[in-house]
Design a protein around this nucleic acid. Structure first.
Length: 736
DNA sequence: GAGCACTGC
């Protein structure tokens, strides 16, 4: 413990401690400690403001739970892990990083003496990979379980399994492990049922009532109607002119929409005095955010127009009024086209309650929903579909396999993902050589799981490492895993300027290759004397590039460690020029994202879905389509068309040997692999069938015909149709 | 010829 030498500091600490006794949880301290002692699993529910996140670990520490091991508390977000740890360290009068610490990616603030450790759920998952029984912990607390983040859901299943596998895992421990899951009230019973009907401890919250009203702008029949933006603006102005003092928070779906709404509000400004309009979105420069968190000047009302970032990640004080559009932009995995699609969808009822709740943090509030009661009843689901059911599972399934979970279908999921999502993930892992035909993790798969990247990208990195050219792939992998680095300003003049500079950067590499451009930007900036100024001059996000630098360092460290530990680290040889070497490495990881030009500027994906795609105009390959035949690409964007971005040309010969892998495995064959390890008998049957299917010599045209299997585009087509409809509704003049 | 929500390792 650290002494508190100065009086002001001591006073402050005392007041923090006094305040903690006023929290609703304080009255239940002894009962809570007993409840944790009495059972293996405990579910604790309590709304915002109950104090469960800060106080429970402190109570357990005081009750002696740290005698044998640590108390670990997970959070879905980095900032939460850090700020809560700071707060608790202050209350326990110790230096952050000593008894109380935190660990998030790139920031480990713990030491030998740390016994109360806050961390992100992803960090604990990494720890389990290294130590499957969590032998250092006496208590594990999963917080914010109701948010259903992918990592928290996996942790939940793993912890349940740890105790149900006839205590095999637990035998490896010298003292018992206690598991506490904390959640908002709604999910408590479900959690209890999942964890062998464990006790539920309820702590009252401390929030103020929020009254919600419905509007007229969006009904179930015009689900995609965008006239709602006008309604949002109208409601905001009504609130400003007729409601009492208090700030407004508006929930919209995306950056452009925020901008449009702010413009509409500004237009009304001459008639509406004293409204401070502030947009808020994730990638916004931090210097522009300051005003948002400061109280407005007296007599001025703040109106924050935000994306979903204001739903959980950021808290703004003084919000009394919520205006809820009822929509969110969400990345969903579509297994029919085998791709991730970013789309606007109605929020769930629980999500809308959460949004409303943002108005009741400091006093009673009001929530104005711009959609009808009918929309609420007919078009909004009860709960948000958990991430695990709408995301690509490739990386997660590899993690489970590496943890010895062979039966990935019957793994105890709180909510099971659809079987075809799991099968698709297995198929991809097989294609990347991470698992074999029996579903066992390969040597390569064990290396791959160590990298915090998509398995395909990791595959390319490892290929490069085996060829001794990881200096080409590590920076690229880092650049592809951070947010978009190219700034494209709104002003037409500036936009032109930025585009010209970006095009010049691409031309510098001497080849049409968006991956090479990214690598070049990384290298040029890194070797620059004043990197931040270099970024400014080239319209590049300095913040994003800085994080690419740290990611690259981390990836390099992981690779180095694996090469030292692993005696038989793969080694290959290659002679050819650097550009070919680079692209060949990419092919090993991106051969599932390969397309061949069909007619004009249209490309056809070769992954068996046969989707028609176009090059995005931001690509350096754009307008060069005539010169291209085969390309690989990093991602897909569905707007007015299906666009592929970040692409490069390849030669058919480079993927020829890999392409058969795309269709040699029948996904249904893998279902047995998914359930358990395959028996020898099944294996022989399978091999026989496979051999029968295989042609002795497959011609180019045969492979292409097989891959151009048309055309499963229906869902993407739907998304596009909806988009076009919205576009017309928003720009009625242009439609004529 | 251009519609990137939000997390996390």
């Amino acid at each position: 413990m650290v002494q508190t030498p100065t009086t002001p500091c001591a006073l402050r600490l005392t007041s923090v401690q006094l305040l903690s006794k006023l929290l609703p949880i304080y009255r239940h301290k002894e009962e809570l400690i007993l409840a944790v002692k009495d059972s293996t699993f405990l579910a604790v529910t309590g709304e915002t403001g109950s104090g469960k996140t800060t106080q429970l670990p402190k109570y357990l520490h005081q009750a002696g739970f740290c005698k044998d091991g640590k108390i670990g508390i997970t959070q879905p977000r980095r900032v939460a892990a850090i700020t809560v740890a700071q707060r608790v360290a202050q209350e326990m009068q110790c230096t952050l990083g000593r008894e109380v610490g935190y660990q998030v990616r790139f920031d480990d603030c713990t030491s030998q003496s740390t016994v109360v450790k806050y961390m992100t759920d992803g960090c604990l998952l990494r720890e389990i990979l290294a130590d499957p029984v969590l032998s250092q912990y006496s208590v594990v607390i999963l917080d914010e379980v109701h948010e259903r983040s992918l990592n928290t859901d996996i942790l939940l299943g793993l912890l349940k399994k740890m105790f149900s596998d006839s205590a095999k895992a637990i035998k490896g421990r010298s003292f018992p492990l206690k598991v506490v899951v904390m959640s908002a009230t709604l999910e408590a019973d479900k959690l209890s049922a999942f964890l062998s009907d464990c006790p539920v401890f309820t702590i009252p919250g401390r929030t103020f009532p929020v009254t919600s009203t419905f509007g007229f702008a969006v009904g179930p029949k015009d689900i995609e109607s965008a006239g709602y933006l006008k309604e949002v603006v109208k409601v905001a102005l009504d609130v400003h002119t007729s409601e009492m003092a208090g700030d407004i928070l508006v929930f919209l779906t995306g950056k452009l929409e925020l901008k449009r709404a702010c413009d509409l509000l500004y237009e009304k400004r001459p008639t509406v005095e004293g409204l401070l309009i502030l947009p808020l979105y994730g990638s916004m420069p931090t210097d522009q955010q300051r005003q948002i968190f400061q109280p407005p000047p007296s007599g001025i009302r703040k109106c924050v127009v935000a994306t979903n970032i204001a739903a959980t990640s950021l808290t703004i004080n003084g919000i009394k009024y919520i205006i809820d559009s009822g929509f969110v932009k969400q990345l969903n995995h579509n297994s029919r086209v085998g791709m991730d699609i970013l789309e606007v969808v109605p929020i769930s009822k629980s999500e809308s309650e959460q949004r409303a709740g943002r108005a009741g943090r400091t006093s009673a509030g009001k929530c104005f929903r711009i959609y009808t009661k009918e929309f609420w009843e007919k078009s909004m689901p009860e709960y948000t579909v958990p991430e695990i059911q709408r995301t690509s599972l490739t990386a997660v399934i590899l993690t489970l396999k590496c943890l010895g979970v062979h039966d990935v279908i019957r793994f105890p999921y709180l909510d099971c993902p659809e079987e075809r999502f799991i099968l698709e993930a297995l198929k991809q892992l097989y294609q990347f050589d991470a698992i074999d035909r029996r579903g066992r993790v390969t040597q390569l798969g064990k290396l791959m799981v160590e990298f915090p990247l998509h398995p395909g990208l990791t595959r390319a990195v490892l290929k490069a490492a085996s060829l001794g050219c990881h200096d080409l792939l590590l920076p690229l992998a880092a650049m592809l895993s951070v947010e978009n680095i190219f700034i494209r300003p709104g002003h037409p003049e500036k936009q032109k300027e930025a585009d010209t500079i970006h095009r010049a950067l691409a031309a510098k590499t001497g080849s049409m290759n968006d991956f090479a451009t990214l690598l070049s930007v990384f290298q040029l900036c890194k070797s620059s004397d004043r990197p931040s100024a270099w970024c400014k001059d080239h319209w590049i996000h300095w913040r994003a590039l800085k994080s690419a630098f740290s990611v690259e360092t981390q990836l390099r460290e992981i690779l180095l460690r694996l090469q030292q530990v692993q005696q038989d680290f793969p080694v290959d040889t290659f002679d050819g020029d650097k550009s070919e070497l680079f692209r060949r490495c990419l092919c090993t990881g991106y051969f599932t994202n390969v397309a061949r030009r069909s007619v004009g500027k249209v490309f056809c994906t070769m992954d068996g879905h046969g989707s028609m795609v176009h090059l995005h105009p931001s690509s350096s390959l754009f307008d060069q389509e005539g010169k291209l035949n085969w390309i690989i690409f990093h991602d897909v964007l569905v707007t007015s068309r299906m666009y592929v971005r970040t692409a490069c040309p390849i030669r058919y010969e480079w993927v020829k040997d890999l392409l058969p892998k795309l269709h040699e495995v029948d996904v249904y064959e893998l279902s047995s692999v998914a359930r358990e390890e395959v028996t020898d008998e099944e294996m022989i049957q399978w091999e026989t069938r496979e051999a029968a299917k295989r042609q002795p010599e497959v011609s180019t045209e045969d492979v292409i015909k097989k891959l151009e299997k048309r055309n499963n585009e229906a869902t993407v087509g739907d998304a596009r149709a909806r988009y076009m409809q919205r576009k017309q509704q928003r720009q009625p003049n242009k439609a004529l």
